[in-house]
């Protein structure tokens, strides 16, 4: 047995039911977990936006607006990175395979579709996996110099 002990990444999760309160519950939980881990405000802002976009995507596209299905959101905080993991029980749906959206134009009729563009911008890495019961989207954020943990107060 090694004498060197490394602290395992700390993971915790919340399960919300698809519905009108789901996004605000996820946001409250993300902010609370981020604060508990003393994540820097700039990083927490990015994770917050990505969680909102990814969960909204599941609710709108994966679940087609149906209420009641569970969506699990996990935050895994390691020494060098933070992972946001979204698990659902929806039919197969890989948002990363959707064609990138062009920049918005004032005169176009289409409104929306920016969620994945926003997530691609803020996350260092994105990974989709089909699970036995649904879909898993993992967004990885690096704890680099610009978005490290907040200084101790």
């Amino acid at each position: 047995m090694s004498g060197v002990r490394r602290e395992a990444p700390h993971a915790s999760s919340i399960v919300v039911r698809a519905g009108p309160e789901a996004l605000s519950r996820v946001a409250d939980w993300i902010r609370a977990r981020g604060d508990a881990h003393a994540l820097a405000p700039a990083l927490l802002d990015r994770i917050d936006v990505c969680a909102a976009e990814l969960v909204a995507n599941v609710l709108e596209h994966g679940l087609g607006g149906a209420a009641g299905a569970p969506v699990r959101v996990a935050l895994i905080v390691g020494e060098a990175r933070v992972q946001l993991v979204i698990d659902d029980e929806a039919p197969a749906f890989d948002p990363l395979r959707r064609a990138p959206r062009a920049s918005a134009r004032m005169d176009e009729s289409r409104v929306g579709g920016w969620g994945i563009a926003i997530v691609r911008h803020f996350a260092h890495e994105l990974d989709y996996a089909r699970t036995p019961n649904g879909n898993r989207l993992t967004a990885t954020f690096l704890l680099d110099a610009g978005t490290a943990r907040a200084a101790p107060r």
């Binding site: 802002d45 936006v49 909102a52 976009e53 909204a56 918005a104 004032m106 929306g112 920016w114 969620g115």
Partner: peptide, 20 residues
Amino acid sequence: VSFLASIGIRALLTHARTLA
């Protein structure tokens, strides 16, 4: 404003179009 997501963008763009 501490947070802006897609749905907020839609709202801003809708009002910008109305004004335009």
